[in-house]
Simulated assay, not measured.
Amino acid sequence: MGAEEHGSTRERILAVALELFGARGYEGTSIRDIADRMGMTKAAVYYHFPAKENLLAELRGPATTRIAGVLAAHGPAADPPRRRALVEALVDVVGDVGPQVVVLLSDPAVGPHLPALTAEGSLPTRVAAALLGPLPDDPQEAADARVRAACAIGCLPAGVQAWRRDRPGSTSLDQRTRTVLVQTVLAVLEAGGPRSLDR
């Protein structure tokens, strides 16, 4: 098998795995399912990817690398303009790496496999910390802010899933959808501040 054919087979396996993970979930997809869809043996899939976790690692690699780069470039959101810039950059990653990968990252079954795939801390936790910037001194207000940040991050895969239902054949976000996602994430982050909760 030549290097070009080897690369092509790997890319086809990844594309089929991503499609099946998106449709059935990570746990609901087996190596046999991937092999059957490709018309090859399980051994042939294992030749390219020794375990299902290797497929997951390769599929999530571009997204996590880009998100880590965004976090490094933007730092914590210390004020509203910096928060908006960070959210816009994160939404751009969603649009560039492909909504299917983002949906895969939101699969609850993927969570337990992430620590084994990376030495980094939890990516959602790091994104939340960056979006929040400095936390309020009051412990309850800090806890409230963390809840808002978790919900804001959850808006991305939820929004992408809703977008995919309306545009099942599309593979990249349009500008209008990107704008809606940015506005939604910011609205959730800024909603329910301390004064509004005391009313």
Rank of each mutant, 00 (worst) to 15 (best):
G2Q: 10
A3Q: 12
E4V: 15
E4M: 14
E5R: 13
S8G: 14
S8P: 01
T9N: 11
R10W: 02
I13H: 00
I13Y: 00
F21Q: 00
F21L: 02
E27M: 03
G28K: 01
T29C: 05
I31T: 15
R32V: 15
A35R: 02
D36V: 12
G39E: 08
M40G: 01
T41E: 08
T41N: 04
A44E: 11
Y46E: 05
Y47W: 10
F49Y: 15
L55I: 12
T64W: 10
T64L: 11
T65I: 09
R66L: 10
R66Y: 03
I67W: 00
A68F: 08
A72V: 11
A73E: 15
H74Q: 13
A77V: 09
A77L: 03
A78E: 15
R82Y: 07
R82L: 11
E88T: 12
V91P: 02
V91L: 05
V91Y: 01
D92Y: 03
D92M: 01
D96A: 13
L105N: 04
S106L: 04
V110F: 02
H113D: 05
L117S: 07
R126W: 07
R126Y: 04
A128E: 10
A130I: 05
L132K: 05
G133N: 08
P136A: 06
D137E: 15
P139N: 07
A143S: 12
D144L: 05
A145L: 04
A145W: 02
A150K: 05
C151E: 12
C151G: 09
I153V: 15
G154D: 11
C155L: 13
G159R: 00
V160H: 00
V160E: 04
V160D: 01
Q161C: 09
D166Q: 14
G169S: 06
S172G: 07
L173E: 00
T179D: 15
L181E: 04
A187P: 02
A187R: 12
P194F: 03
